[in-house]
Every structure is written in C-alpha cells, then in structure tokens.
C-alpha cells in the first residue's frame, strides 16, 4: 500500500520536533535526512520557518546550524496538540 503523503503541517511539525529532540540546534543535513525531505523541499520549508522566526540560522566554526527559537518551541507544543486533535478526527 502506498505511503500516505505528509501534509504541510506534518512536515513543519516533523522538522521542529526533530530540532527539539536534538537539543534545539541541528545541521541542515540532519533536517534533510531526519525530516525525510528532498533538497528543494527542505529549502522551501527552512525559508518559511526562518521568515516566521520559528528557527534561526547560526554559524559556529564556519559551520551552518539551525536553532529552534522560543516561538518555535511554543509552536511545537501547539502543533502536538493540534496534531492529536486532527488525527483523532482522521484528518
């Protein structure tokens, strides 16, 4: 049976949950593999999360990381609740 295509909310949630699990700061490649996304789609989602100030870009030792912001952490909790409610209704 074909896997169900993830919705936008699920992908955003997966990225933010992954960042939270990894201590709040991750490399782009971690998001790429952990979030199970193509490079193009990753860029779209990262740009959106940056614009919405849910994550921020940081550079340490010439390496690029993404860090979840306080707003991002609040959204993670909000998303968990929304996900639970919408899943219960089969959305």
């Amino acid at each position: 049976m074909a896997a169900k295509r993830r919705s936008k909310i699920e992908i955003i949630g997966d990225i933010l949950f992954l960042m939270q699990r990894k201590g709040g700061k991750v490399k782009p490649t971690h998001i790429l593999y952990g979030g199970n996304l193509s490079h193009d789609r990753l860029k779209i989602y990262i740009d959106e999360l940056l614009i919405k100030k849910l994550i921020e870009e940081v550079e340490e030792e010439d390496k690029r990381f993404y860090r979840i912001t306080d707003n991002g952490l609040k959204l993670v909790e909000e998303l968990r609740k929304i996900k639970n409610v919408t899943e219960a209704f089969g959305l």
Binding site: S7, K8, I9, I12, L75, K81, I82, V85, T86, L91
Partner: peptide, 13 residues
C-alpha cells in the same frame, strides 16, 4: 483547533 491548523498550513481540510 481547526482554525489554528488552517492558519499554520492554509489547507482547506
């Protein structure tokens, strides 16, 4: 909850 989910995703469902 529905409104919040829509605001985040703009998905019609």
């Amino acid at each position: 909850y529905g409104y919040k989910a829509y605001r985040l995703t703009h998905e019609k469902k």
